[in-house]
Write a protein that binds this DNA or RNA. Structure first.
Lengths: 192, 192
DNA sequence: CGTCACATTGATGCCTCTCAAAGCTTGTGG
DNA sequence: CCACAAGCTTTGAGAGGCATCAATGTGACG
């Protein structure tokens, strides 16, 4: 029953520590303010971490696809700072705080790999921070495509890079006109 | 000669592993593309991590004050992704990659504390990501003040939050008018 | 084949950037 | 002690760009 793949370093955690959770589209694993239980691994499907602001607008702060873990930063936090929402029917597995913390204490290879993950997430966030300070919509859109951020729909991308979807469509059209991008399909673009 | 304070967990690294570096204002410890030597701790003064974009515009991705460490994410990277620049005459100490990696392997408490630092940095970046997606200049400025981001000048803050300094000054004036902020001095504001 | 979400383009108004100028604060050197 | 320079602070005016509203096209899926 547990013939799915858990990525390193979490494969080092014993199977009995794993609890599988089924999710429908739009269902949440946890919400902003909930007590932290641990981190999660996507067995199937994909999820988004979303921060909600009072004004009603929200930001996607992380996307996790199949085989990826999310909410690592919750390990040392008492409550989640964002919502985790399934963007399609998905299966996730909970890796409880205790089991992960125990693994850190008993297995330095585990700790090292986990730290590597955290480090690369930090660098990812820094790149995105840089992206968001580009004021010109066309240039920001181009940078996002270059950074391989267009994995879902353009609606989704526009939310991630802080532009209206109309602005992104117009930017894409302009970039194609400038021959800096080529359209490879409905809502698909590649750098030339 | 080594009666300065190194914050946890790096105090666990033996003193002989430490090399002190003196910096003048504007001097850099490392630059984007340099090979990584390790991470650093600020003994005195303050530094900024800056990412430079081709268009010439740059983003401050981290500020490190006295007693803080920076470039932790470089541990598992072969080269630095940004410049580290002193914003005043400063002293920093290098904690070499090897000594830190060794500490991780031999001391789980060290690993745990370091991971905690990385986790809180991730959450900080997420918060800042959220901030940058606030489109209204006044609201973004208010959020920045609430987040205690006004430590230097307003010119500096405006660069960090991706607004022109004029827009920030106008926002601050508006917020004072709205009685959501009070001016506590030249370039100093507090939430009411 | 109808519905729904995404994709695309047009028109309008507001908001921020940019350029400009003047007051303010601090430090430096004569 | 004063004058000057340099950088921060503040306000004004104009232009351009993005958000917003609106409408239509398009592909996917039941």
């Amino acid at each position: 029953m547990s013939h799915f793949i858990i990525p390193s370093p979490f494969d080092l955690i014993a199977a009995p520590e794993r609890r599988i959770i089924d999710l429908e589209l739009g269902e949440t694993v946890f919400r902003q303010g909930d007590e932290t239980k641990g981190l999660y691994c996507v067995i199937e499907g994909s999820l988004e971490l979303i921060r909600n602001h009072q004004n009603g607008h929200s930001v996607v702060i992380y996307k996790a696809g199949q085989g990826e873990t999310f909410a690592e930063a919750s390990l040392y936090s008492d409550f989640y700072h964002c919502d985790a929402r399934a963007t399609e029917p998905s299966k996730v597995v909970l890796l409880s705080k205790n089991s992960v913390l125990a693994a850190i204490r008993t297995d330095y290879a585990f700790a090292e790999k986990l730290m590597k993950r955290l480090g690369s997430q930090i660098q990812g966030y820094r790149r995105r921070l840089e992206l968001l300070t580009i004021n010109d919509a066309t240039e920001r859109t181009f940078a996002a495509i270059t950074d391989q951020m267009l994995t879902g729909s353009i609606m989704q991308l526009s939310r991630e890079i802080g532009l209206s979807h109309e602005a992104v469509y117009r930017s894409l059209a302009e970039l194609v006109r400038q021959k800096r991008l080529v359209k490879t399909g409905r809502g698909r673009y590649d750098v030339t």
